[in-house]
Simulated assay, not measured.
Amino acid sequence: MTDFRYLIVGGGMVADSAARGIRELDADGTIGIVSEDVDPPYARPALSKKLWTDPEFSWDEKVDLHTEETGATFLLGSRVTAIDRDAKTVTTDSGETHGYERLLIATGGKPRGLPGLEPSDRVLDYRSAADYRKLREFADAGAHVVVVGGGYIGTEITAGISQNGAEVTFVDPDDVVGGRMFPDDLARAFQQRFVDAGVDLRLGRRVSSGEETGDGVVLTLDDGSTVEADAVVVGLGIEPVTQLAADAGLTVRDGIVVSSTLRTDDESVFAAGDVAEYPDRILGTRRVEHVDNAQQQGRQAGRNLADADETYDHTPMFYSDVFDMGYEAVGQVSSSLHTVEDWTEPTVTGVVYYLDDDQVVKGVLLWNVWDKTDEARKVLADAHSLTPDMLIGRIQP
């Protein structure tokens, strides 16, 4: 058995930030990182963004997070199957046991799949660097790739590979690309960039079944039509990996329930990242699946593992870059809410506020507007004192 003062289950960006957070307070305590991934922690957003759009964006300098600088021990390609809270140990799928004084669960999420298809060299759930390397081979060969799902991963990957030689078919249940998030005028402008790029749009459609053949993949859509391609990228979101925590007797709802200091029911066990349900000081109880939260919450978890006992007070933002468009946002961005649009140039540069039925702002979208997320957070913090007419001009591009 190998013992660590600090043991982190999961090898993503949370693990890197947590290890660095630990080192801010404890220069010598041993750190172990157990990860199913075969690569040490890397900047996951680059897999669907910069690696496709910036030829100067190198893996070693920009993507690899160089977590080894913290002195952590990596246990890669290894899955934790059980936590024994009484013994303060974890067991892996290879039968190894590792002891801990403090444990951080950062297991992230498991991608949702398509009926009839299992992940393979042609069926990519696009969660790892290995998936990126496989997809890069297809794009470089000018292959036909089907992208399923119109969220962040789906739209970014469609834009990225269509600009890198791939023939792309895009399948999305929304009738307009981005329709679940953006006001109709903005969604239609967003969609037009995909049309201009030559993407074959199959909108208002879902995949009923799929089959992997010897040289490709065949998808059957819910209207009975079929799409044959060399590969498929599945971008249908994730389910938080909470079973490990639940089996250990920790409280789980939408995610692993943690306090404002990111501690679970067990004073020696913390959780952070995609998997953690935590109390946001502005927006209330939530679980966030974006990089800003992974970095900031991971760092705070690391500091608290090392006895800082500090509250996590950061309200995270999220962002996306698609073709020549980009946005940052804070809070809830959904076309099911009411909107107030404040454009400098319609659908090109501006701010969209999302309000509930009581006219309270729940989210702020900054479209091609940068470095204004602190102002967006202030709007959300002051939401109950703001009326819709007070929003116009409140955040200047």
Rank of each mutant, 00 (worst) to 15 (best):
V257E: 15
S259K: 03
S259W: 06
L262A: 07
R263T: 15
V269F: 06
F270W: 04
A271W: 07
G273F: 06
V275H: 08
E277W: 08
Y278D: 02
P279A: 05
I282D: 04
I282L: 12
G284F: 02
G284W: 03
R286T: 14
V288L: 09
E289R: 00
Q295H: 13
Q297K: 03
R299V: 01
D307H: 13
A308F: 02
E310W: 02
Y312P: 03
D313G: 13
T315M: 01
M317R: 11
F318T: 04
S320A: 14
D321P: 06
D321I: 11
G326C: 00
G326V: 07
G326A: 14
A329G: 08
V330M: 04
V333H: 03
S336Q: 12
V340T: 09
E341T: 12
E341M: 07
E341L: 09
W343P: 05
T344K: 15
T344S: 15
E345N: 14
P346E: 15
T347R: 08
T347A: 09
V348M: 10
T349P: 03
G350D: 11
V351Y: 09
L355A: 08
D358T: 07
D358M: 00
Q359G: 00
V360F: 05
V361L: 00
L365Q: 12
L366C: 09
W367L: 02
W367R: 08
N368W: 07
V369E: 08
W370G: 00
K372G: 05
K372V: 04
T373F: 02
E375V: 01
L386G: 04
P388D: 09
L391Q: 08
L391V: 11
L391A: 12
